[in-house]
Design a protein around this nucleic acid. Structure first.
Lengths: 142, 142
DNA sequence: CGGCAGGTTGACGTATACGTCAACTATGGT
DNA sequence: ACCATAGTTGACGTATACGTCAACCTGCCG
């Protein structure tokens, strides 16, 4: 992932998120270190549905909280599609029973994938160490 | 007062003010038949204080209600300065006692002014009728 | 390697907002 | 007539938002 323009971040670091209840797209992008372009992209993927005042998006606290969830999900390695499914349950299931079940399923899947990758990586490292040891002791050609 | 561009009104006539709680400057201008320029002018006269989301004004229902009061005051012939004084009391006096007293004072002043103008107009009309009668009967030159 | 999918970003034309500096209109007073 | 005031409006340069159409980057798979 590429770095965002630093002047944009610098411009918005004074945003006091605790006191505000309305945010522009530039406010959120600057605060969270993503581009306005990315926020609009997420909306096009139905991850976000901010209000429009005139033609301009206006975000409420709950939109900001939702965006924070999206970013956290991404950091944990979930796809936007997974996150979207999760959030659509968040939107509709007041008891959150199905939401928790889905979350466990997704987390299990993700853990399994990461553990497989970890095992692969360990295997690769072990094999490389073995090859290095053979090269050092002058053992048979590989 | 000049007419506003009719295409602007036409564009915004579908605004459902009862359901919304946030308005853009163009929303309000279109709905109320004034220009965005005039709304910004009122703000510069401290008659209005809308929120900013980013650099953009966002108006809440109470801002809209306040703007309606301003326009009503103007229709009754009050100056913007009078209206501003009235509204500043509206902002600070929860019991509205001073507000009502000031309103009565302002209305009395306005009525007195209008009644004086009415008396002047009646006098002028009476004098013109007298001159017309003299011209018709051939009485002494004026 | 190439292809694909996911995710992000860029280019760009259009629209609207903004603030500043004036200009215009109407009214009243001298 | 001129001047002052109140109220509105215009011109204009700047900034940012918007949506559309691509392009780019990364990782994975065959």
């Amino acid at each position: 992932m590429k770095n965002m323009p630093s002047e944009k971040n610098k411009k918005n670091q004074i945003v006091d998120s605790d006191a505000k209840d309305l945010y522009s797209i530039a406010d959120l992008a600057g605060e969270l270190g993503i581009s306005t372009r990315t926020i609009r992209f997420y909306e096009s993927k139905n991850l976000l549905s901010p209000e429009r005042v005139g033609n301009t998006r206006v975000f409420r606290k709950r939109d900001r909280a939702r965006l924070l969830l999206i970013l956290r999900g991404k950091r944990l390695g979930f796809s936007l599609r997974d996150i979207s499914e999760y959030l659509s349950l968040y939107d509709t299931d007041e008891t959150q029973a199905h939401q928790l079940a889905l979350l466990r399923t997704k987390v299990d899947e993700r853990l399994e994938l990461l553990e497989n990758q970890l095992a692969d990586l360990r295997t690769t490292i072990t094999e490389l160490k073995e090859i290095r040891e053979l090269a050092r002791t002058g053992a048979p050609d590989i």
